[in-house]
């Protein structure tokens, strides 16, 4: 690997981490919300489907003991798609389940997010609110679970 490539690595990784975060949100969103966000876009770009939505399996792995050697736990259905938008960006999507429409929208939004002219609007209209809603749902789940926290105490029984 040349030095020039090494210099690029850090910002690219940071970019990948942000994109990964966006892809995680899209994967957890429901189709209706993605469809509505697409319809609401002010300037929808033209796009071409590179790989039509396809459903397959990913073998999910665990680790022995939680942190040991990997083993195969079982498979999960996954649907993926690839699209290219007219400004040249290629969007990918992967999400659990068999929802082809969702895969297509998620790939479109991944492409849009990479396009400088679309990212701002997308962050405002979809990514930001989606992140807040999903975080809100997690916070609610944590709070519900927290209410079941128990303090066990031990008692000495009988006489010694």
């Amino acid at each position: 690997m040349s030095e020039a490539q090494d210099d690029d690595a850090a910002p690219r990784e940071a970019g990948d981490a942000r994109r990964k975060n966006v892809m995680a949100l899209l994967a957890r969103s429901d189709t209706g919300r993605l469809a509505a966000a697409w319809e609401a876009l002010t300037n929808k770009p033209g796009y071409r489907t590179v790989r039509a939505p396809e459903t397959g399996l990913v073998m999910v792995r665990g680790r022995a003991g939680g942190g040991g050697r990997p083993f195969n736990l079982g498979e999960a259905t996954v649907t993926r798609a690839v699209v290219t938008i007219e400004t040249g960006e290629t969007g990918y999507s992967y999400a659990l389940g068999r929802d082809r429409k969702k895969a297509l929208y998620a790939a479109l939004f991944d492409a849009l997010w990479q396009a400088p002219r679309h990212r701002g609007e997308l962050e405002r209209s979809l990514i930001g609110p989606l992140a807040r809603d999903l975080e809100g749902a997690d916070a609610r789940s944590r709070a519900e679970t927290a209410a079941t926290k128990v303090d066990f105490f031990t008692m000495v029984r009988g006489e010694d």
Binding site: E54, T55, G56, L57, V58, M59, V60, R61, G62, R63, G66, G67, P70, N72, L73, E75, A76, T77, V78, R80, D138, S141, R142, T145, T148
Partner: peptide
């Protein structure tokens, strides 16, 4: 009936959103 895309990264159960 479905193609296999591959294997996941091992799950990180220490990072679980815990329900119980």
């Amino acid at each position: 009936t479905l193609p296999r895309f591959g294997y996941s990264e091992p799950l990180e159960t220490a990072k679980m959103l815990v329900r119980r």
